[in-house]
Design a protein around this nucleic acid. Structure first.
Lengths: 198, 198
DNA sequence: TGCCCAGTGGGCAACTTTGCCCTGTGGGCA
DNA sequence: TGCCCACAGGGCAAAGTTGCCCACTGGGCA
């Protein structure tokens, strides 16, 4: 299943990551508005033109991890065992991701906070979340089937509730200064939101 | 005088340096004969083909620093103030180089030792030294003028004596396990070899 | 002796990065 | 208001890197 992607692919991933990291670091240091693409490419040791080959804007570069995670999440849900229900698949996918990438670190919180403060980034993130929500609805529908009436509504509610739980858990985690592991808070939030389903 | 070489040039230099470093490290670890080009390119994170774009062989890659230093030395001699005599220019260039690059480190001694043990590398290094000697003769001639009879012989002797002094100083430095700074030993050796000129 | 095979060297096309250029945009400021 | 100027976006050709290929070499070994 694990296939080595070859040098060319690996280097592209490295470059993308380097640009993202540089953007994040500079944005944390002085705020995204006071960072030019010029600054980023200098920090990432690439040409300005190459930046454009990878990202359309510094916002893109900054949110790369975010959007990457969203794609991963959707993929993880879709790849859960077929016998799991939609809700089980969602919870399984979360658990899986937290296990695979380990506990999100301080940097992760920083990025989230930073994003939240910046209007244009916030807009982007809302759009991303909306997209994720749509994708999850689709994934759930594909899984639970749409035969019975109201299945669509149920999938929508489920996806929304799921994301709300994650969002709230993340907020709490940040507010608590990462005192408890995020995974624990998330499990708790998911339990809570799932209660009506019983 | 100092001109920033641009990203493209800088990256080429970085790659060349990375290949050289990787070669050196691996050669020190297990001997050059037990290092393949494959190993080197893996360590340097480049493709095998790129290796060939930079060096014709692993010996080339290993001796890169050596040959680089030779070019630097010749350049340094040529760029000494015009009013200096040939011998003054040689000494000035050495002092300058030791100052610019700082004291050569342990790695430098390692490379030298390693080179000395390996027949094909040794041959290469002898050829390099011969080339350096020729270049220095030329530089000295250009400086001191060739008007008077015997000027050519004098330049040849001077260059040879100079290199002998450096070579012996380096040997002593290694034998003493780098107890004294190389610069000090070199000054002493140069004083010694210069005595007949008084 | 003949065969195999790891390692090397380099041609070539596909792809990526760079450098240069020109256009467009949104403040500052005379 | 009009002019500048820093910055962003992206077309294009040149330069660099990769991946694939094949030819060659020098041991090992049946």
């Amino acid at each position: 299943m694990e296939t080595t992607p070859g040098l060319r692919e690996r280097k592209k991933a490295e470059t993308r990551q380097a640009i993202h990291k540089a953007t994040l670091r500079l944005a944390v240091e002085r705020g995204l508005d006071h960072v030019t693409v010029e600054d980023i490419v200098e920090a990432a040791n690439i040409s300005r033109r190459t930046f454009s080959n990878y990202f359309g804007s510094k916002e893109d570069a900054l949110l790369y991890g975010e959007e990457q995670r969203i794609r991963d999440m959707v993929r993880a849900v879709r790849e859960r065992p077929a016998e799991e229900s939609g809700w089980q698949a969602l919870r399984g996918a979360v658990r899986e991701m937290l296990r695979d990438v380990g506990e999100p670190d301080r940097e992760w919180a920083v990025r989230t906070t930073l994003t939240r403060r910046h209007p244009s980034l916030l807009a982007r993130q809302l759009a991303n979340h909306a997209a994720l929500e749509r994708e999850l609805v689709q994934a759930i529908s594909d899984r639970d089937g749409q035969a019975e009436p109201g299945a669509d509504l149920k999938a929508r509610i489920m996806a929304a509730a799921f994301l709300v739980a994650l969002r709230i858990a993340t907020h709490i985690w940040i507010e608590e200064q990462e005192a408890r592991p995020l995974s624990q808070i998330m499990e708790q939030a998911l339990d809570e939101v799932a209660r009506p389903f019983h």
